Measured scan of single mutants.
Amino acid sequence: KKVTINGVEIKFNNPEEAVKFALELAKRLNLRIEFHGDQIKIE
C-alpha cells in the first residue's frame, strides 16, 4: 500500500502504519494534518 505524504510516496504494509507515522510526524513538528484518501497533507 502506497501513501503519499506531502507529495512523497511512502510504501507501508498497512494503512494504519501510514496514519500512525503521519500523526507522529505532525505531533513532533507541531503541524496540522489532512487526510484525502491515500493522500496525507501535513503543514
Rank of each mutant, 00 (worst) to 15 (best):
K11F: 15
V3M: 05
A18M: 14
V3D: 03
A26P: 00
F12D: 00
Q39H: 13
K2G: 05
G7F: 10
N13M: 12
L23A: 04
L23C: 15
K27H: 09
V8L: 10
Q39M: 13
K27S: 09
A22L: 15
F12T: 02
L31N: 00
R28H: 09
L25R: 00
Q39E: 13
D38A: 04
H36T: 11
R28K: 08
N14F: 12
V3T: 04
E34Y: 09
F12Y: 03
I10N: 02
L23M: 10
N6L: 14
V19I: 14
F21V: 06
L31F: 04
F21T: 04
Q39P: 01
E43D: 08
A18I: 12
N30G: 13
Q39F: 14
N13C: 14
N6W: 14
K20P: 02
A26S: 06
K1S: 12
I42F: 06
E17H: 05
E16H: 08
F12W: 05
K1V: 15
K41I: 14
I40P: 00
T4E: 04
A26G: 03
E17A: 11
V19W: 14
N30C: 15
T4W: 13
F35T: 03
K1T: 14
K20Q: 08
P15F: 15
A22S: 01
K27I: 07
A18K: 03
A26R: 01
A26Y: 07
I42K: 00
A18H: 03
T4N: 07
K2H: 08
T4K: 08
R32G: 04
V19A: 06
L23G: 02
E34I: 14
N6P: 02
I10K: 02
I42P: 00
V19N: 03
G37S: 07
G37V: 07
I10F: 11
Q39G: 10
E9H: 09
V19K: 07
A22F: 14
K11D: 06
N30S: 05
I40C: 08
L25W: 06
F12V: 04
F12G: 01
H36L: 12
P15I: 14
N13G: 09
K2P: 06
G37K: 07
N13P: 10
E24D: 09
I5D: 02
L29Y: 09
H36G: 07
V8N: 03
R32E: 04
E16Y: 11
I10L: 09
L25G: 00
I40W: 02
G7D: 03
K11G: 07
K27T: 07
K27Y: 05
N30T: 04
E24K: 05
K11V: 13
